[in-house]
């Protein structure tokens, strides 16, 4: 059986402006806020809908495998 590539959500600390949009609108509450900064707290719940990535005004989020990261 081929093992699935390690899935993760990366957030670019340099470009994130802490607007809170990803945290508020994730349908699965995957993020929590650490002084405004989004941190992944519930990766298992993520459905990979990528809404957080599409709505991030600063292109700071990548949802997916390692090859998607910058």
């Amino acid at each position: 059986m081929v093992s699935e590539k390690k899935f993760k959500i990366s957030i670019n600390d340099r470009t994130c402006k802490r607007c809170g949009i990803c945290i508020a609108f994730c349908p699965k509450k995957v993020f929590s806020s650490e002084n405004g900064k989004p941190v992944v707290v519930n990766l298992d719940a993520c459905t990979k809908c990528k809404l957080c990535e599409l709505r991030c005004p600063d292109y700071a989020i990548v949802v997916g495998g390692e090859e998607d990261e910058q």
């Binding site: 402006k17 802490r18 607007c19 949009i21 599409l54 709505r55 991030c56 005004p57 600063d58 292109y59």
Partner: peptide, 11 residues
């Protein structure tokens, strides 16, 4: 600005 949706639209 933080949360300005111009970034979302450009994306």
């Amino acid at each position: 600005c933080p949360g300005c949706s111009h970034g979302i639209l450009t994306g």
